[in-house]
Nucleic acid binder design. Structure first.
Length: 458
RNA sequence: GUGGCUAUGGUAUAAUGGUUAUUACUUCGGUUUGUGGUACCGACAAUACGGGUUCAAUUCCCGUUAGCCACCCCA
């Protein structure tokens, strides 16, 4: 096809536009531009306002509650995720990036980080630290799902985990951390909460539930019919109209909780009241991962219209059995994670237009240089300023003063320093006020002091 | 994974089965030498990819890929 095209162009345009025809031919031979993989998004400088805001605010909230930074590898043994998240789950079954490395070992890109943290807790003997261990993290996760707005194959999470203790106050605190992080970012959120009890509670409940669904089997959607034996709990999450009617009258797990779990859950709710975190009890909330016990919760954007598919900002819960299941000693734990892309989506929705305005509203000083000597002097001067904590913008590869002033203007500089041959010889520098256009000549030695004053005042 | 809609320069768009594919923004350069925001001039730059129908396809058809939306699920 490219060949056909070029010959056609060449023949039709050979008299008039020889040059452009030839150029076309060259263009067609040019290597095809690469595109990013499906569902992989570039994070662009124009969105730095959002991303840095989420990074910084989430970090500061986590630290304020006494959480420490931690990371686990992006790549882990595939088995780790299969065992922890669960064989029957969609995350493992159809969404995980799983492949063999060069040694033939089965590895997987992490679809979430709780399992990795739990593994790291065991491998690093972190049970010898004062318990509980409270950590936070942020970073990319991978799920091979069909992309949609607010859903990508590489996405980013901020999360917290508390390992080594079981107390309702921990659950409540985690919910408060997640809720307040979102709130600090200007988003109104609601917490959906439920308890799915201990593993034992769940066994008993499941017997009852399956019995119920069997009796109503003919009313269920096809998808849910399959799940009756495979993953009956998940039917409760269904949004299918038919299913919803059946679910309404289904037995609720809350009625099957042990005394201990019930009391535990009540305490969590009491503490949430104390923390003034608004929540909604959702008896059908079960979460998609197998390792949860007792408290489970999800966070949603709190707005009438935006309550569509992508309004889930994150979720979490208690997972008292996970560490033991992965080969550690019995270690109760709980945690949550928030989707950063989802948060940013909500921020945009709520017209928190941080991305449109430079995040930094501080005064900005631009350094313009002229001529080789000016450039040299500018290099050392800027370096000197930087060392003393004065940051100036510059574009030293540009030669014309006009061009540099243009840039200064686009970057909303309040002042521009101009340094050319003349100034180099005099040991001075021009400071131009970008609003009034008034220029002042000052000694280079006084520059640092002057700039510090400007940066403070404005 | 299933279904629906879509695909024109970096962005946003116009148009057409037939000479050179419209316009705006952005980017770069210029309107004399060392002064930005305005104005004027100019340049770069696109029919996603592959195949079919046709004398002729950017336009019609099919496939692929990608994006969006819904489902599934989740963050």
């Amino acid at each position: 096809m490219p060949v056909k095209k070029t010959t056609k162009k060449a023949t039709t345009t050979k008299v008039t536009k020889k040059g452009s025809a030839a150029k076309k031919a060259v263009d067609n031979k040019k290597a095809k531009a690469y595109e990013s993989l499906r569902g992989m998004k570039d994070i662009l400088p124009k969105h730095e306002g959002y991303w840095l805001d989420v990074f910084h605010k989430s970090e500061s909230v986590a630290r304020a509650y006494g959480y420490q930074y931690m990371q686990a590898p992006i790549l882990e043994q595939a088995q780790l995720f299969v065992r922890s998240i669960g064989k029957g789950t969609d995350v493992v079954n159809k969404e995980m990036y799983i492949f063999e490395d060069r040694d033939g070992k089965k590895v997987a890109l992490r679809p979430e980080l709780t399992a990795g943290i739990a593994r790291a807790y065991i491998s690093n003997g972190m049970h010898n630290l004062p318990q509980p261990v409270k950590v936070w993290y942020q970073g990319p996760m991978f799920r091979h799902d069909r992309p949609q707005a607010g859903r990508y194959r590489q996405f980013h999470q901020f999360g917290c985990e508390v390992l080594g203790d079981r107390d309702p106050v921990i659950d409540a605190e985690l919910i408060a951390v997640s809720y307040n992080t979102i709130k600090d970012l200007g988003i109104d959120a609601v917490v959906h909460i439920n308890s799915i009890g201990s593993l034992e509670d769940r066994q008993n409940y499941l017997v009852e539930l399956v019995g119920y669904f069997r009796s109503k089997r003919s009313y269920l959607s096809d998808e849910s019919k399959k799940r009756v034996s495979k993953n009956p709990l998940r039917i409760l999450d269904s949004k299918d109209g038919q299913d919803l009617e059946v679910i309404q009258d289904a037995p609720q797990i809350i009625d099957w909780l042990s005394q201990d779990s019930k009391a535990y859950f009540m305490k969590v709710l009491e503490y949430l009241d104390e923390l003034q975190v608004p929540y909604v009890l959702v008896p059908t909330l079960v979460r998609g991962l197998d390792y949860y016990t007792d408290t489970v919760f999800e966070l949603f954007v709190d707005s009438e219209d935006a309550l569509s598919a992508q309004s889930a900002l994150g979720g979490g819960g208690r997972y008292d059995g996970l560490v033991e299941q992965l080969g550690g000693r019995l270690t109760p734990a709980a945690g949550f994670s928030l989707g950063i892309e989802r948060i940013i989506l909500a921020m945009k929705d709520q017209k928190q237009k941080l991305g449109d305005v430079p995040a930094e509203k501080k005064p900005h000083i631009f350094f313009a240089q002229l001529g080789e000597q000016g450039r040299r002097r500018a290099l050392s001067l800027i370096e000197q300023l930087r060392k003393s904590g004065v940051f100036v913008g510059s574009h030293l590869s540009k030669n014309s003063l006009k061009g540099q002033l243009e840039l200064a203007n686009k970057q909303h500089a309040t002042h521009t320093i101009i340094l050319g041959q003349k100034e180099v010889q005099d040991g001075t520098v021009i400071i131009r006020d970008m609003d009034s256009g008034i220029q002042e000549i000052i000694d280079q030695k006084k520059l640092e002091k002057k700039l510090k004053k400007l940066l403070e005042i404005v």
